[in-house]
């Protein structure tokens, strides 16, 4: 997998660049598949998990108006990248593994190699770049709908919206947003590599493709979460100013 990562990055930057068309079609493919599941998921998670439970938690301190501040932490720093990665891995990642796996089983990848077409450059690189960029952009989308879920939770709890926005905007920092964005882009890279690798090494007929998809999602989830832990830890420890609630 590491070898594939290296190869992908090297052949992404070394000319010629034959993957433009494939990149665009993969990009649109991922966006088309993911926008609807991601919308439902982000609103649901931020309404339930961070909205209702955080109002409970903050009510204990008698400070439900701090919900906005919590949403910077919850929506921007954690849940938006989390949910984006989960949905992208589950939706676009599985589709990529299924696609590449089927090509591997039908020996299309070998045929490409015989024709002198490098499968890494022409299949993996465009998927890698497309998934990275899509995941990064979807992070913004997820933040927007995550905050919308928070607004829903505030309104249904009968709290005024003014304090929510006030604390949200005073606490939101540029570092948080960049952190979230960079984290999500790297998630996309992890997912793309894992899914392409599992797809390209699929073997054993119909069951092999299914198994490859299965393993791809499992490995991608664990890798994303492990990476997330390290990243959040580093971000919080190296930027203490973003943990201060203003």
């Amino acid at each position: 997998m590491m070898i594939l990562t290296g190869k992908t990055i090297v052949s992404a930057v070394r000319p010629p660049f034959p993957y433009g068309g494939e990149f665009i079609s993969q990009f649109l493919f991922a966006v088309r598949l993911c926008w609807f599941p991601l919308l439902i998921s982000t609103v649901a998670v931020s309404y339930g998990a961070s909205g209702i439970q955080a109002i409970n938690f903050l009510n204990i301190f008698g400070a439900p108006d701090r919900l906005g501040g919590f949403f910077v932490l919850a929506a921007i720093r954690e849940f938006a990248p989390f949910v984006t990665a989960i949905v992208l891995a589950g939706v676009a990642g599985t589709a990529i593994t299924a696609d590449l796996g089927a090509r591997k089983i039908r020996e299309e990848l070998d045929a490409l190699q015989v024709l002198g077409v490098d499968p890494v450059k022409n299949l993996v690189v465009p998927r890698f770049l497309a998934l990275m960029i899509v995941t990064g952009l979807f992070d913004v989308y997820a933040v927007i709908f995550g905050v919308f879920g928070g607004v829903m939770a505030t309104v249904t709890s009968g709290l005024p919206l003014g304090p929510f926005w006030a604390t949200f905007l005073t606490n939101a920092s540029v570092i948080d947003l960049w952190g979230s964005f960079v984290k999500c882009t790297l998630f996309g890279a992890i997912i793309a590599i894992v899914c392409c690798y599992k797809g390209m090494t699929a073997s054993g007929g119909a069951e092999g493709v299914g198994k490859a998809v299965n393993q791809a999602v499992v490995v991608a989830f664990i890798a994303v979460f492990a990476f997330n832990y390290v990243f959040t830890q580093t971000l919080l420890a190296t930027n203490p100013e973003i943990t201060v609630i203003r």
């Binding site: 598949l33 599941p37 998921s41 989960i86 949905v87 589950g90 939706v91 599985t94 589709a95 593994t97 299924a98 696609d99 796996g101 089927a102 089983i105 039908r106 007929g205 119909a206 069951e207 092999g208 493709v209 299914g210 490859a212 998809v213 299965n214 999602v217």
Partner: peptide, 16 residues
């Protein structure tokens, strides 16, 4: 084989 892969991917979307 393609169908199995697609079905797996589809089930994942709905499940999530």
């Amino acid at each position: 084989p393609v169908g199995v892969g697609t079905a797996t991917a589809k089930s994942m979307v709905l499940n999530l």
